[in-house]
Amino acid sequence: MNIFRFLGDLSHLASIFILIHKIQTTRSCRGISFKTQAVYVAVFVTRYLDLFTTFVSVYNTSMKIFFIASSCYILYLMKVRFRPTNDPSIDTFRVEYLVGPCAVLALIFNYGYSVTEVLWSLSIFLESVAILPQLFMLQRTGEAETITTHYLAALGAYRALYIPNWIYRYFSEGYVDPISVTAGLVQTGLYLDFFYVYFTKVLQGQKFELPA
């Protein structure tokens, strides 16, 4: 564990708390893509299958449980508790276009041909593009509530912070995980446009609005 990874994980935790806070205080999941949130459940469940077989640390296990539980809770908030505020008609990104290619990639690139390793690989590839339905929705509506942009910024910062973590681990432990690094770079890259608007507008006190 190093400071970059720890801050990345904290940022990931923060993003989830921000999202839950947004939904509960506004009593609405407007502006949140259900598809993105559903993909996150799939990401956590497929990645943390080792929860019962591999023990890394109490930290690791608790975080895994938290990520699975909180992502399921968010789906519950969206589909049951605040269902009327969820508008599927603007959440139109075709998720099957993400899952298919990721499944093929996972079958080609993995660290071993076992069910758990291929699913782990799938979860890494899927996570890298999971935000696309959300960004697509943002693009389509052209604006976002400020709290939603804080959620996205924290989520983007999480993967961005993993990059210095991998550089650090390469030099300190000789550790390299090419699948995570490649997917992580792609994932961070997807946020660049968003970050630009976030830093130049939202953090200057303006509303998040995309040029028409």
């Binding site: 994980d9 990645r47 890394v56 660290y111 071993g112 973590n165 550790y175």
Partner: peptide
């Protein structure tokens, strides 16, 4: 490397 198959990152 990852020969051990243990993924210690989240």
């Amino acid at each position: 490397d990852l020969d051990s198959g243990i993924h210690d990152e989240l």
